[in-house]
Structure formats: structure tokens, C-alpha cells
Design a protein around this nucleic acid. Structure first.
Lengths: 222, 222
DNA sequence: GCAAAAGTGTTGCGACTACACCCATGA
DNA sequence: TCATGGGTGTAGTCGCAACACTTTTGC
């Protein structure tokens, strides 16, 4: 191992911000950090940093989430390893990128400042390196995965109404969903449990609160 | 980048071998390399090696395919980056693993010997490192992807009959498929073109030969 | 003609879509 | 009682599975 590329771990972190999307829907937001050195000095980049010898890849991702934005992910999955020759300026770096979902309570409590700033996922500033391409891919994966896996609830809290869950789907998929059919769709997946409680303080019929239960195995062996 | 893990690129290479599976079906085979140094000296491992500074990840995978087994992949896709602490013995190595499909003509012409040997995918010897887990994951991905993407034909030649393509599916999915329904299924995908030619020298009605055409975009942006 | 595989027709079921409709609550 | 979203019913469409059936070849 005489002369090898460096290894970095970065993460695309998705959270939901209320009422910022089309027609008052929630929208996807993500935190970026401002670069404090060359190359791309002053540009915005994905949170991340070099992989140290004594931590696993996922641990490195989690550590950077906590240290830069004070976040703990509700969902974390490896996205891709980016290793093109020209992607990182003069020195060669292979970036192993993760993507994460954080809950709504935690996202709204997250610190800004400290060179960290949140942006709407479809109105990003100019990004450093190939990070725009990476975000595009992460968005593509998120939209794909939401269509077949039960992960959207991880952008909410512990309990949620079906209407809240539906607006998450609508924000991610960027199209309206029929409330009646959506209800049947998610309930048929057998991953939601009726808590018995209802949401109070709404000006109409109070909706039931549901909780996610992972009865079945995860799809991937990791 | 003072003290960082090393980077290796390895590949799980799948090919089809005729008449080796259940009931004379083809079966999935893959080439392994015998280790010539510690750790795991003498055990079988996935083809691969360290990533050098002047090649991209996919190029490194392709180079190892060519140099160890003399193969050119018909399909190559990144599988996963494995980076657990204890996976590589004393020194820390992150392996970026690809998986590949090679055509039948090329697979049967591939060199054995030279510390390279082909094995049936479900009767592997004891593998070095975490390579058994990697192969399991690659098999899982292959079986999943065959169910929704048109890639099985890449284990055959340029042209093929629908019956040949069906046996590929059957070998991968390990269950019989209805010939009538399979025909309609793949033709409905609009990715096969009738060459006009038929396969001669069979003891019954000669089947048409088809060719793959990629009318639509790839799913992933890479 | 017969065997065997290629290829076509037909039916039924299950999942999703569209949309009509009823229910429960606050104001 | 009305407006509003929660929640249920129902009919049509589409894709696929099952399987009967016809076609085309070698022997």
C-alpha cells in the first residue's frame, strides 16, 4: 500500500421542512457545509471527511452527522463509492457516500451556523467537487426506494397520521396521491400499527395515529 | 491523508455453464483466485487487487478481470464498499466490490490454471476474508435485478432463442418458468428484436433468434 | 404419424386507480 | 348546519399465472 488514493466518507442527509414546498406541502431539505480550504474554497459541500483507521464506514458517516450538524439518522444506507480520477482536484480521493433520513423533530432542532446551512433539495447553490451529481443520485435513489420500501416514516416522528405520511410521499414523489388508495396501500403492507390514539386539536374529524413496526426482515443483508 | 486504510477493488464474476445445474439446466459459475500470501494463504478469494492512483474504480475492476481470467465483462456494476474493521486481517483495507456478467462464448474460452479456478456459485470452497458474504450479496443482487431489469441476456451471446434466455432466468431464479408466459413477458418489455433467423439443427420446430436492443435509458445515472 | 419444443388463445385472480360516498368533528 | 378532512365501497383496468391448444420441425 505504498501510494494509494485517500478515502473520504460523505453523507447526503435528507429532512423534511414543513410548508416550504409546492402548495404548502413539506419539502426535502439537506444540510451542506461551507468549505474552508482549497479546492472549492467557500463553496458548499456534503458533510464528510477522511476515513480514519479505527472506524467502520457507517460509523464514520454517523460521526460526521453528529459533529457537523448534531444529527442522529433514523435511516442510513450506503449510496455509492465515487472514485473518478478528476473528481477531487489535485489529490486523488475516493468518496464512499451514504444517504440518511432524519426525523422531523430532530431536523427542526438542528443547529445552523458554524458553516452549516440547510437548503431545499431542488434549489441548491453551486456545489463543490461532483457533489451535485451525488445529490442527484441520492434523490433518485430516495424516490425509487420510497416506491417499494417502507422508509418514508423515518422523516417523521415516532407516531404519525396517514395524512402526514401521505404528504411525505407526495413531497418525495412530487405528485398528489389519492388519500383513499394511499391508506389501503400502506395498510396492506402490514408495517403500521394503530396506536389507538388520535391527533387532537384539528378542526375536523381527528385522524388516528400510527406507529411503524418492522415485522419483516430488511431487504438487504446489511 | 497521513494514515489511511488501503483501497482494493474486487469483482464477483458470473458466467453460465451448460448442463451443470439441476435437471441439466445451466448453472452460475464464478472464477476465484488462490491466495499466494498471508493472510488466508492457499484459500480462494475474489479476483482483485489494490487500486492504483491513475485508474478509476471501474477501470480497476476491468483490468483485474482481464489480467486474472482474460475476461471482458458484458455487464459491470458496482456492488458495495466493504469496510469493516476486522474484515482484512491485520492491515485495514476497504474493498470496493463490483459484479460482472460475461457471455457464454467468452466464459467457455476462459483460461483456468494459473491459480484461477471456476466454481459453481452454490458449491464454493472456503473463501478468504469476508468474500463468502460478498458473493452471497452479489447473488442476492443478481437475482433481484434479473426480476426487474433486462440483464440476463448478457450471460449469452449476441443472438439467442427465447428458450435459451428462459433457461438463464430459470438458472438464476432457481425455479421453472412457463414458456408461454415468459415469451409474452420479455416481448412486452420491447427490448428484444427478432433477427429473422432461426436456430438450425434442432430435432423439432426451429426457434427464432432474437437480439437485445436498448431502446430506453439505463435506470441508474451511471 | 409421433415426439417435442415453438408459439398462440383464453380465462381467472389480485393489485392498483378513479371516484362516489359516508363519518366525525370544530366552528 | 356546514365545511373539512378522515375513512369506506365499488367498478374498471392491467399485468400476470395457469393451462389448453395449435404449429412446425426431425425422425
Amino acid at each position: 500500500m505504498t501510494n494509494q488514493p485517500g478515502i473520504a466518507v460523505s453523507t447526503v442527509i435528507f429532512a423534511l421542512r414543513e410548508g416550504e414546498g409546492n402548495k404548502g406541502l413539506p419539502a426535502l431539505w439537506l444540510p451542506l457545509v461551507r468549505r474552508t480550504r482549497e479546492p472549492y474554497l467557500g463553496d458548499w459541500a456534503l458533510p464528510g471527511g477522511p476515513l480514519s483507521l479505527e472506524e467502520s464506514l457507517a460509523d464514520a458517516a454517523r460521526r460526521h452527522l453528529a459533529s457537523t450538524a448534531g444529527l442522529t439518522p433514523r435511516y442510513l444506507e450506503q449510496l455509492y463509492a465515487f472514485g473518478d480520477l478528476a473528481r477531487s482536484g489535485a489529490e486523488r480521493v475516493v468518496s464512499i457516500v451514504y444517504w440518511a433520513l432524519v426525523g422531523s423533530a430532530e431536523a427542526s432542532a438542528a443547529q445552523e451556523g458554524n458553516n452549516v446551512c440547510w437548503f431545499s433539495a431542488d434549489e441548491l447553490p453551486t456545489l463543490a467537487f461532483d457533489h451535485q451529481r451525488i445529490v442527484d443520485y441520492a434523490l433518485w435513489r430516495l424516490r425509487n426506494k420510497v416506491a417499494y420500501a417502507q422508509i418514508a416514516h423515518r422523516l417523521l416522528g415516532e407516531t404519525f397520521t396517514l395524512a402526514q405520511l401521505r404528504t411525505v410521499y407526495e413531497a418525495i414523489l412530487q405528485r398528489p396521491l389519492d388519500p383513499a388508495n394511499f391508506r389501503r396501500y400502506v395498510l396492506a403492507r402490514k408495517q403500521l400499527e394503530d396506536t389507538g390514539a388520535v391527533l387532537e386539536g384539528v378542526p375536523n374529524r381527528p385522524p388516528r395515529l400510527y406507529r411503524y413496526v418492522d415485522a419483516s426482515r430488511e431487504q438487504q443483508p446489511f
